[in-house]
């Protein structure tokens, strides 16, 4: 039986990797992957708590998160493809249209 703390630790590590990646990388594809990492880190902790508390609500929530993440990934990649066709870049430093 793996104790709860291990799951929490793993989840935290994965989440921090995601956040750090999102903040320091400039490639949009990598940034999208990092977002997925963060989501899945949260999913992991939700499932761990669900098992620990013997409550299925956490798992239901995870299924919702996966669904939304799938939709998000699809839309995000679609925007990315459209962006690449127009600008031929996937590097965020080059995309400064909104600069005030």
């Amino acid at each position: 039986m793996v104790p709860l703390e291990w799951y929490i630790a793993l989840s935290t590590v994965i989440f921090i990797i995601g956040v750090t990646g999102f903040l320091i990388r400039r490639n949009i594809i990598i940034m999208l992957i990092c977002i997925e990492l963060m989501l899945n880190a949260v999913n992991l902790s939700l499932i761990a708590f669900s098992h620990y508390l013997q409550d299925l609500k956490g798992q239901i929530l995870v299924i919702f998160v996966i669904t939304v993440a799938a939709a998000e990934a699809a839309i995000g990649l679609a925007i990315l493809v459209a962006l690449y066709r127009n600008k031929a870049v996937v590097h965020t430093d080059k995309l400064t249209e909104m600069k005030g």
Binding site: I24, M31, T96, K99, G100
Partner: peptide, 17 residues
């Protein structure tokens, strides 16, 4: 306040974090 709008995605992400 428009100076805050740098156009760099990472700055916004930093703000969010």
């Amino acid at each position: 306040f428009r100076k805050l709008q740098t156009g760099f995605l990472q700055h916004y992400a930093m703000g969010m974090a």
